[in-house]
Every structure is written in structure tokens, then in C-alpha cells.
Amino acid sequence: MNQPSQKRPKKLLDQVRDAIRRKHYSIRTEEAYVRWIRRYILYHGKRHPKDMGIPEIEAFLTHLAVDRKVAASTQNQALNAILFLYREVLKQDLEGRINAIRAKRPKRLPTVLSREEVRRVLDAMSGTPQLIAKLLYGSGLRLMEAVRLRVKDLDFAQHQVVVRDGKGMKDRVTVLPDSLIAPLQEHLQRVKLIHERDLAKGYGSVYLPYALERKYPNADREWIWQYVFPATALSKDPRTGVVRRHHVSESSVQKAVKKAAKLAGINKRVTCHTFRHSFATHLLENGYDIRTVQELLGHKDVRTTMVYTHILNRGAMAVRSPLDSNHGDQIAL
């Protein structure tokens, strides 16, 4: 009599993916964690993680800092991935502290554009990338927060943007510039036509966060849940295989900003995040208090926001060069 075949256990990395999806982590986090766990295993000659522990974790993290010279944030991501593996997948406690050589976090001031430089960069852009860049500067959004905006997140009546699940999984409210209301409303009229065409062809669904898709079975096709900045083409969801219209690619915006900065003749390293830095600095220059700016940016700790006080052009603590205070005096050299 044939023995019934036993179901083979899932591979370790598939178990990691399952655990990440149960926690509702983003696809980006899933890809990053799987990549770091694979590198950790390969570094130790494909030994199973259950047979390893703190010494092996320390060795791998030290290798990243000393040999690979990764940034502190990169090393922290690797550590978080490995801790997730042991806690959430292997259910294995790690006894003691992890004392790896840590990558040094450089103390750099953020790049900030003047108001004139912001105008020149924005004027060198057009279409959807320009509209997104104006939101980054006008509302202080991170790039991923902007491209993930849903129709319902724009409150035209209250002149505000609701940022859902921002960094640290926190919601916040920030300002919606008056000058963007009409352009955004015109943009949404065009987006709605795209959505209606998708529906007519049997598509029109959008990815919904967490368990909302199960709780509200038809919500994924409702207009209010659609992305404000949808992709130009339909694509297959890598997790479910469902054909949907995702949001616009962040890389397309990054390339557009880089190209515009070059066209505008800006001799600084300009990225999408530079607009957020400029938003914060210009608000402080306008006299808004640090706590207000902290809330608009969604910073957990006001010390993170305080970095912008060090790059103000003028302010209560601004220093005037002695050279500028000696206009008519002759200076001995």
C-alpha cells in the first residue's frame, strides 16, 4: 500500500515572505529583507540560520561595515531583516547583545535650494513629474508618499493632504498649496477617464492596503481608492498575479528631477528629497515654529527637524561675517 506523500515544508525564504505578508509590510520591505537574509546565509557558506546565532550575526554585520563599507542605514536594514528572521520565522530567541562594528553615520547637512532655484527646477519640468515635484516642495512630501496618494487623500475643501502610512506607519496631515488645487483637479479629470476605460475593459482594480480588499470587496474599483498618479500601463501584481494599474514609477520622477536640475544650471546635487528639505527650511525662514514644521514633516523627534535650523540663510542665530561688517574699512592682509 502506497504511503500518502507528505507535503514538503516551504523553503526558508518563502516562509520569510509569508511572515512579511502577514505583517502587511510593503513589497519593498519584503524584497529588501529577503535579499539581506539570503546574503547572510551565503556569507556563512549556506549554513541554516537555526544553527547560527549572535556570533554569526556580528560577523556578517562587521563584514558589511568594514569590508563593504555600507552606510549606517544600510547596515541597520540588514540587522532588522536578520532579527525578523529569528523572531518571526524561526521563533528563536537571541540571547545577549549584538556587538558588531557599526557603520558610522555621517553628519551631513541636507542640500537646500533657494526659492529662485526651486522655481528654475520646476519651470524646467512638465506634465505629471512637474505636478509631483510641486507637491514635494509645496507639501513637504517624501517621494513615495506622493506617488502612493489616493484620490480620497486630497482634501480640496480643507486645503490639505492626508498622508496615509507614512514613514513609521504614521498618518499625518500637511498643507495643500492653493496654487495646486486647479491643476490637480484637472489632472484627476484625466485620470478618471483612464479609470473608466479600465473598468470598461474588465480591469480598474487597484491594490488596497492590508485587509481592506477582503473587508470591502468592491472598494478596489471605487474611484476614491484609485492612485492620484497612476502608471501609464497595466501591470501584474508580483504577489497576487492580478493585473492592475499601479502608481507611477518613482524612478521616472527621480530622472525628471535630475534632468531638470541640470537644465536649470543648478550646481548642487538635487534629488526629489531636496524639495522636502527646501520646504522645511523655507517655512522656518518664514517664521513658522519648529513644532509646526515637525508635524507637517511627520518627524517623530523634533531633533530631526532641528537640522534645518542650522542651514537658515538668515535668522535669530545667523552670523554675519566680519568681512561684511567692514564695508569701508581697510583690512590688513
Rank of each mutant, 00 (worst) to 15 (best):
P4H: 04
P4T: 06
S5A: 14
Q6W: 02
K11E: 04
I27T: 04
R28Y: 07
R35Q: 04
Y40A: 10
Y43E: 14
D51E: 15
M52W: 08
G53T: 10
G53L: 15
P55R: 07
I57C: 10
L61G: 10
H63R: 09
L64H: 08
A65V: 11
D67F: 08
R68H: 10
A72H: 11
S73W: 02
S73H: 08
N76H: 15
N76K: 14
L79A: 10
L83F: 03
L83H: 07
F84C: 12
L85R: 08
Y86I: 09
L90Q: 06
L94T: 11
E95H: 12
I98V: 15
I101D: 04
I101R: 09
K104H: 09
T111G: 13
R120S: 08
S126C: 01
T128D: 03
K134G: 01
R142A: 00
M144Y: 00
R148W: 00
R150C: 00
D153V: 02
D155P: 02
Q158I: 01
Q158P: 01
Q160L: 02
V163G: 05
R164N: 06
D165I: 02
G168V: 01
R172A: 04
T174V: 13
E186V: 14
R190K: 15
D198W: 06
D198T: 08
A200M: 07
K201H: 07
Y203P: 07
S205V: 14
V206R: 13
L208F: 04
L212H: 06
R214C: 10
Y216T: 10
Y216A: 09
D220L: 09
R221Y: 04
R221C: 02
I224S: 12
Q226R: 13
Q226S: 08
V228E: 05
F229I: 01
T232S: 15
S235H: 02
D237T: 12
D237C: 14
R239I: 03
G241H: 05
V242F: 11
V243S: 06
V243L: 14
H247M: 01
K258M: 07
A260V: 08
F275Y: 02
R276M: 08
R276D: 07
H277R: 05
A280Q: 04
L284Y: 03
E295P: 03
E295F: 00
E295M: 07
L296A: 05
L297Y: 05
G298S: 03
K300I: 12
K300T: 11
L312K: 07
R314D: 12
M317V: 11
S321K: 07
G328S: 15
G328D: 15
A332E: 15
